[in-house]
Simulated scan of single mutants.
Amino acid sequence: MSQHFLLSAAARTISLKAVLSLTDADAWKLFQRLRWPDTDGAPVCPCCGNGRCYDVTRGATPRFRCAACRKDFSPTSGTLFAYHKLSIRDYLAAIVLFVNAVKGISALQLGRDMDISYKAAWVLCHKLREAMASEMKGASVGGSGETVEVDGCYVGGHVRPANYKANRKDRRLAQHQTGKRKVVVAIRERGGRTVAAVFPTEEASADFIKARVEKGTTVHTDEAHSWEPLRTKFRIRQINHSFAYSHDDACTNQAESFFSRLRRAEWGQYHQISDLYLGRYAAEMGWREDHRRQPNGVLFSRLVGQAGRSPMSIDFTGRWQKRAA
């Protein structure tokens, strides 16, 4: 039997040891190359986009001045790492730990590994999830001749049953639920990318699915009536799970694979996911599932570059200083 890719040496192209051995200058050069790949690390002004900048560094952090707008900036200016408190080497090391955790890493564990507070680790993890989600922001999947699988997974709102059987209530009824239960709807193209979003019910996702799946796509779903509105735009193939998980090439197994990763992250790493941030965790697991067969060095470069090109976080920049929007 052939060796699984993740067990091979080709899957290991970067390590925590290698990042921590970098000097501050080398760490900054690495970040600059990943943030500005088109210029091989040469600075580009984040305000006006001019490439004519010169070095005005006075300390350990590189500083540049734009020849056009005359504004000073650093490599992290205008990015998710703006106003950073940690060294850039610590951020790169944290990203290595983050991408190496195939089912996610909790903020508590990351804080212990990096010797930083839980608050700092929690914000950093959410910023990295924001960078992951930006890859599929506004993107569509499918197209003529393509196949897309659609399915839903209900998360959260657990109601603990009473101790004595006589006191237990039917948790399927709406009046006995917490109202926090949400459904993560996954739209996964076979051999392509995953789009995930959170809705109160599966029925509420129909318009979103129609907007994010291209015309001419064959959509595979399960037997739920929630997907009937999709017939007005797509050719639908359904699989009845009470009969089989896959039959005559009709299945939702790749969507179920995504949900398996989400469930294992919820139960084994995070233990509880707030409905407020459920969409961010779903986007993270979609990113991990889409890039699961790539070396960790590629994942590292992709995430660092995406974080370097993403604007400052509205939700998490200055969160603990009460400056977040």
Rank of each mutant, 00 (worst) to 15 (best):
H4G: 00
L6W: 02
L6K: 05
L7V: 00
A11S: 12
T13F: 00
S15Q: 00
A18S: 13
L20D: 11
S21Y: 00
T23Y: 01
D26C: 04
K29A: 14
F31L: 12
Q32N: 09
R35K: 13
P37A: 09
D38N: 06
T39N: 02
T39V: 07
D40Q: 12
G41L: 02
R52H: 14
R52D: 15
V56Q: 09
R58S: 11
F64S: 10
R65M: 13
A67Q: 09
R70M: 05
S77H: 07
S77L: 09
T79G: 06
A82V: 14
L92C: 01
A94N: 00
V96G: 01
F98S: 02
N100S: 06
N100T: 01
G104H: 03
S106L: 07
S106F: 08
L108A: 06
I116G: 01
Y118L: 09
K119A: 03
L124Q: 01
L124Y: 03
H126S: 02
H126Y: 02
H126I: 01
K127D: 03
E130Y: 06
M132S: 04
M136N: 11
A139S: 13
S140N: 10
G142Y: 10
S144K: 11
S144H: 09
G145T: 03
E146C: 11
V148F: 12
V148A: 12
E149L: 08
V150Y: 05
Y154R: 11
V155C: 07
V155T: 15
P161R: 13
N163Q: 10
N163Y: 12
A166F: 00
N167M: 02
A174G: 05
Q175V: 14
H176Y: 15
Q177T: 13
V184N: 12
V184H: 07
I187S: 14
E189I: 08
R190I: 12
R193S: 14
A197D: 15
V198R: 08
F199D: 10
P200A: 14
T201W: 09
S205Y: 11
I209N: 07
I209K: 08
I209H: 11
R212C: 12
T217G: 09
T217L: 08
T221D: 10
K233D: 15
K233H: 15
F234S: 04
F234T: 04
R237N: 10
I239D: 04
I239R: 06
S242W: 14
Y245G: 07
Y245H: 03
S246E: 15
H247Y: 15
H247M: 14
N253A: 09
Q254W: 09
S260T: 13
L262R: 10
R264C: 04
Q269K: 12
H271D: 06
H271W: 11
Q272E: 13
I273A: 06
S274W: 10
Y277R: 12
G279Q: 10
A282F: 12
A283G: 05
E284D: 06
G286Q: 05
E289C: 07
H291N: 13
R292Y: 04
R293G: 00
Q294E: 13
P295C: 08
N296W: 02
G297W: 01
V298K: 07
F300R: 00
V304G: 01
A307E: 03
R309K: 14
P311S: 13
M312T: 15
M312D: 05
S313G: 10
I314C: 06
F316A: 02
W320I: 04
R323F: 04
A324M: 03
A325Y: 07
